[in-house]
């Protein structure tokens, strides 16, 4: 597992950005707080090429096979998957709630679009999260500037296209500032 700055090996296909994959799981009975959240989140590895991504991804459990309250977070290297991080604090996320059984396919479609720069919003994308919960699963994509509506609309339209979900699928946008206030998204 590569930690710290990553480099592509000869012959590999470089990505526009380097990314880090994180994993977190809520331990039963543990009260949620920002401190607990930060302690629970573990770096799995970092990559900067297509080949390095597949090598890491192939070793990870698919989201649908996870149990309990677990999350994968795939963020640009240097951005911590926390609302309070400088790159995130003025931002927000699009949220899509999924019926059980769809998370693995949707997560793969989402992250391939992100790694392949399909969102076409410059530096705006921060990362993506898949959250495994009891009744439903949730995927989200985080961007830097919550009040830039042209950008958030563009992200929503690309997300809808790459996830290939029914047209009536509900997509919600939530600013991290609101999440911090209501503490709802742990």
């Amino acid at each position: 597992v590569q930690r710290g700055p990553v480099k592509p090996s000869p012959g590999e296909h470089r990505l526009q950005y380097a990314y880090s994959l994180w994993f977190s799981r809520r331990t039963p009975g543990n009260k949620t707080s920002s401190t607990n959240y930060e302690q629970n989140i573990k770096l799995v590895g970092s990559f900067c090429s297509v080949e390095q991504f597949w090598a890491l991804y192939s070793h990870c459990v698919r989201p649908c096979d996870l149990s309990g309250h677990s999350d994968f977070h795939l963020f640009k290297e240097g951005i911590k998957p926390m609302w309070e991080h400088d790159a995130n604090k003025g931002g927000g996320k699009w949220i899509v709630r999924l019926k059980k059984g769809l998370a693995s396919r949707c997560w793969e479609n989402l992250i391939l679009a992100m790694l392949g720069e399909q969102f076409m919003v410059g530096e705006e994308i921060c990362g993506a999260v898949v959250s495994i919960r009891f009744q439903e699963d949730i995927i989200s994509i985080w961007n830097k500037t919550a009040n830039d509506q042209a950008t958030t609309n563009r992200i929503r339209d690309t997300l809808r296209r790459v996830l290939n979900l029914p047209p009536n699928t509900i997509m919600e946008y939530k600013t991290h500032n609101d999440s911090l206030k209501d503490n709802s998204s742990f």
């Binding site: 090996s9 990505l15 297509v50 080949e51 597949w54 192939s58 391939l112 790694l115 392949g116 720069e117």
Partner: peptide, 21 residues
Amino acid sequence: GTRIIYERNKLMQMRNSPLAR
């Protein structure tokens, strides 16, 4: 500079490259 863009199919093809193992 130019952005490095990959379509989904291209990324899927590279999944089977020997370099990705």
